[in-house]
């Protein structure tokens, strides 16, 4: 078998796999919708603690606000605290929240090793703990996007776009955050079978705050290190704020032949994907508001005595140059 046919076959397989994933995701959406319709959920007289690592990104702001709204809609009283991406504040707020003895605590994002001891203390204090995008053994139910699916879809799109070979630059600064770790592992799993795809070493570290500026600087430096076109094929990050900085750096340096990939569906990045001349190639959009609502509905179900699955998956939608208009409409952006 020659190299060309092998790549060709693989590319077809990739497209098939992606299509199949789409169908699975779509059917998941239908079943979860159907489930919401049945039964009247209520949180009347319940105090629900809502704690978030921050609200400075599109994703967490949407999920946070949707939780607060949903608790109110179901007749409960939200006690909502925002740690502003400060771990010390996050732990203090959780501590106080536990002492307030709410009927449940829902934790949105956060570094597992930092929050887990406190989620355990909440559980020890007989407060049911729920999480969004945090895989903790102390949580009764974790509402999350299917990060394995997200990671695989994004990796397959990337590998397909670059024709199964070339150097890719990877931002891997938040491996301690579970969803980011899963997405990264899926990228590694996929490129394992494409030996001509290489991750440029050392991997880059994305940072918070100043994510965009920092990614811009780091990518500009990488471009100086690899000046010839084709030496870098794509840039991958586990979320799309580094992707935003990377895309801007590519445009500024005139290296638009390099494609960028990310996750979260931030409106500004989806806009770039929609721009035919932009290096932003794909962004997997989660449905943050839906995640927030589902988590609160799960709390109501649990308090009503229903048994819950360990994880509730809310489908994610991969937006690429072809379908970005449709996806943006679905998410209610633009």
């Amino acid at each position: 078998m020659t190299e060309e046919t092998r790549t060709g076959v693989n590319r077809r397989n990739i497209l098939k796999l992606t299509a199949a994933a789409g169908i699975v995701a779509g059917s998941g959406l239908l079943t979860s919708r159907a489930a919401f319709a049945q039964g009247k959920l209520s949180l009347k007289g319940k105090r629900i603690g809502i704690s978030t690592a921050g609200t400075d990104h599109f994703f967490d702001l949407q999920a946070y606000n949707a939780q607060v709204e949903e608790v109110k809609r179901l007749g409960g009283e939200p006690i909502a605290v925002d740690a502003g991406r400060n771990d010390g504040k996050l732990v203090s707020q959780l501590q106080t929240l536990i002492a307030q003895k709410p009927d449940a605590i829902v934790q949105l994002l956060g570094t597992l090793s930092v929050i887990d001891p406190w989620l355990k203390k909440a559980r020890d204090a007989d407060i049911p703990v729920f999480t969004i995008d945090v895989g903790s053994v102390n949580s009764i139910n974790n509402s999350t996007s299917d990060n394995w699916g997200i990671g695989k879809d994004l990796a397959l799109q990337l590998v397909s776009d670059i024709g199964g070979e070339g150097n890719i630059v990877v931002f891997n600064g938040f491996y301690g955050v579970t969803p980011c770790a899963i997405r990264y592992d899926q990228l590694v799993n996929v490129i394992k079978y494409f030996p001509k795809v290489q991750i440029v070493q050392p991997e880059l570290r994305d940072v918070i705050p100043n994510t965009v500026q920092d990614a811009f600087t780091q990518i500009t430096a990488i471009l100086n290190k690899y000046p010839e076109k084709g030496s870098i094929k794509a840039i991958w990050s586990a979320w799309d704020i580094p992707q935003l900085g990377a895309t801007q750096a590519l445009t500024a340096a005139g290296r638009t032949e390099i494609k960028t990939y990310g996750v979260d569906g931030s409106p500004e990045v989806l806009q770039l994907v929609a721009d035919a001349n932009s290096p932003a190639a794909a962004d997997v959009a989660q449905q943050p508001a839906e995640l927030g609502r589902v988590a609160i509905q799960n709390v109501a179900r649990y308090l009503a005595g229903e048994a819950l699955a360990r994880e509730t998956y809310v489908p994610a939608l991969l937006a690429n140059k072809q379908n970005v208009g449709e996806i943006s409409r679905k998410l209610g952006i633009g």
Binding site: N86, G88, S113, V114, D116, V207, I208
Partner: peptide
Amino acid sequence: SVSFLSGSTTGAGDM
């Protein structure tokens, strides 16, 4: 801080 946050975390400068 290591005991409070179960490890060392980023963002100490915020203090």
